[in-house]
Simulated assay, not measured.
Amino acid sequence: MSARVAIVTGGSGGIGRAVVDRLAADGFNVAVHYSGNRARAAEAVDAAVERGVQAVAVGGDVADEEAMGGLFDEVESTFGGVDVVVNTAGVMVLDPIEHFDLAALDRMHRVNIRGTFVVSQLAARRLREGGALVNFSTSVTRLQMPTYGPYVASKAAVEGLTLILARELRGRGITVNAVAPGPTATPLFLDGKSDEEVERLSKAAPLERLGRPEDVADVVSFLAGPSARWVNGQVLFANGGIG
């Protein structure tokens, strides 16, 4: 039986890189999507190949339907099809709603909402029978933390899209779920935060630490694998019990 094939958007760093590593360890051939840093994507490819699978780096704007259509074309040509799509690509800008820059809002929503929609639409059309789509939300949708409003708005949209798409793909054997991480030690989370703020947030969960990218990758591995075939149309919170 040939290896299953996964596309990971934003797979060159942070949670995306941990997902690539874990799916490669699970035996998936992987397509590592990147937006601007091809060198990091190449490192992820090399690490996957060292695990004994095939891997390729593929670039493009997740919000550009032609670019993402070309990405799916390339992956299908290289590996023969697509079984799993994981949307980790995202942008987070924090500021109070009252003062939030609308240009920043447009940039963030282009990646988080339109990008997720474009890739989800392609996944709905092109995933093989028995496939899985995993989108990314955030635990902050339930925590109502100040300065996170615009980001949460984009991720709440992702949750709504995900849960409805799961119902729309009835009869295809394809699962559609979202993962909602809590505070996780990645550049996306750590950038712009003081040491004191990071320390405070690290104690918020009952487990009293920040999440690791590998913690979230374990959840994705579950949703992408055979043990989660009865998990569909759900948002799984990977946050150590916060909120």
Rank of each mutant, 00 (worst) to 15 (best):
M1L: 12
S2K: 10
I7A: 03
G10N: 06
S12R: 03
G14L: 09
D21I: 00
L23F: 14
A24L: 07
A25W: 13
G27Q: 09
F28H: 11
A39W: 08
A39S: 12
A41T: 04
V45I: 08
G52Q: 03
G52M: 04
G59Y: 04
G60S: 06
D61R: 06
A63Y: 07
F79H: 09
G81P: 09
V85L: 07
T88G: 08
A89Q: 06
V93N: 06
L94G: 09
P96A: 11
I97W: 15
D101V: 08
L102V: 10
R107P: 04
M108Q: 04
R110K: 00
R114P: 05
L122T: 00
A123W: 04
A123P: 01
A124Q: 01
R125C: 00
R126D: 00
E129H: 03
V134R: 00
N135E: 05
S137I: 01
T138C: 00
S139T: 02
G149P: 06
A156F: 14
A157K: 03
L165A: 15
G171M: 09
G173F: 09
T175V: 14
N177M: 13
V179S: 07
V179H: 07
P181I: 12
T184H: 14
T184A: 11
P187Y: 12
P187M: 04
L188C: 13
F189L: 13
G192K: 12
S194K: 11
D195V: 12
E196D: 15
E196C: 10
A204H: 15
A205L: 13
P206C: 12
P206W: 09
R209L: 04
G211W: 12
E214T: 11
D215H: 08
V216R: 02
A217W: 14
G225F: 10
Q234A: 05
N239K: 01
